[in-house]
Nucleic acid binder design. Structure first.
Lengths: 157, 157
DNA sequence: CTATCACTGGTCAATATGTGCAGTGAATGG
DNA sequence: CCATTCACTGCACATATTGACCAGTGATAG
C-alpha cells in the first residue's frame, strides 16, 4: 500500500506525460520495461492507480460555473437524498460531512443564471431542509495529486 | 466547444474502459479509425479532454481522511495565501469563493490525528484569519463526469 | 546457506500507431 | 444550379509498442 521512490517517479511521469507508454516510461526512468510493467500492474491492483480515464473539463463542455453547496438534511432522509442527487448530472460529487451542514456537493452550471436552475433542482426535494451555496470565482490550485505522490514516495525512502 | 453525440459516446467509452485504444474504440463505436482519431485530436485541442493522467486514489496512498476547509482571509493577503497553500501537498485543490468564507480547500490526511497537523500547517500562516473544517465521512457520489457528458451530448443532438 | 524476490536484458509474434491516399455524401455559398 | 468544403470511409504501409516469455544476477530473509 505504501509506494517507493520508483513508484512515485513513475506516477509523476505518467501524470506529466500521459501519452507515453510503458516502453518510453522505462527509458525515461532508466529501468527495464518489465519492471515498469510489473510496477504498473501492482499499482493498479493495489488501487493506487484507479485507471487512466480521460480528464474532462466541464468548462470546455459548456459548464464554466462551479459551486459548492452545503446541504442540511432531514433526519433519516440521507439515502433518498443521495439517490436524488446522484440523478442530477450537474452534481459532480457528493460527500457527507461533519460540521455545520450534513452534505457537501460540487455543482457545475452553464451560467450564473443556470446555476439557479441547478440549485432549484438540487434542493427541490423533500429531504433537504436548507442549502447554502458558494460560487467558485478562481481556482488557484486545480485538483492535483503530484505533490502528495511525491510526499508519499519520500516518506518511504 | 459543444460536443455531438459521437463525441459523447467516445468520451463515455474511454471513461468506462480507458485501456482500449483508438482502434478498439472505433470498432465499438462503429466508425472508422480515422474518425475516432480526428475526434480525439479535436477534443484535446478544444480542451474538452485535458489528458489521460493516472487517476490516483489518495486513500490507497495512505491518506484515507478527506476534509474541506473554509478559510477566511485577511484583506489583500490572497496571493500570499494561495502560494502558501500551493506549497502544502495535502491541499489537493483550492478555490476562492463567494459566500461565508473566502476560500475553500480540499485536504487529505493520514488519520484524524494527522488532519490536525495538516490543518495547523494550513492555518499557520499570517493571512488566514479563521478556518472551519468539515470532515468527509462518506462519499456517495465520487467525482464523476459521465452524466454531464451525456447531458452535454444530448443537448446537441 | 538457501529459497525467494525483484530486476535486467533479451527474444518472439501479434497488435496498434501515425500517416497518407482516393472516393463518397452532405452541407455551404456563389 | 454548380463548385467547394468538410467529415467520414476504407485501405495501405512502415514503424513502434505490447504482452508474453526466458535465463541470469543481486539482495534479502529465514
Amino acid at each position: 500500500m505504501a509506494i517507493d521512490h520508483l513508484d512515485g517517479r513513475l506516477i509523476v511521469l505518467l501524470a506529466r506525460e500521459p501519452r507515453i507508454g510503458v516502453l518510453e516510461a522505462s527509458r525515461r526512468l532508466g529501468v527495464a520495461r518489465g519492471t515498469v510493467q510489473a510496477r504498473l500492474d501492482r499499482l493498479q491492483s493495489n488501487g493506487v492507480i484507479r485507471g487512466f480515464g480521460p480528464d474532462v473539463d466541464p468548462a470546455a463542455l459548456g459548464y464554466p460555473v462551479t459551486a459548492f453547496a452545503t446541504l442540511e438534511i432531514k433526519q433519516g432522509q440521507g439515502a433518498d437524498v443521495r439517490a436524488h442527487l446522484g440523478g442530477v448530472p450537474e452534481v459532480l460529487e457528493l460527500h457527507t460531512t461533519t460540521g455545520h451542514g450534513d452534505m457537501l456537493c460540487r455543482l457545475v452550471a452553464r451560467s450564473n443564471a443556470d446555476l439557479q436552475r441547478v440549485i432549484d433542482r438540487v434542493v427541490g426535494f423533500d429531504g433537504i431542509v436548507r442549502a447554502s451555496t458558494a460560487i467558485v470565482m478562481e481556482n488557484p490550485v486545480p485538483l492535483r495529486i503530484i505533490p502528495l505522490v511525491e510526499q508519499a514516495a519520500a516518506d518511504t525512502g
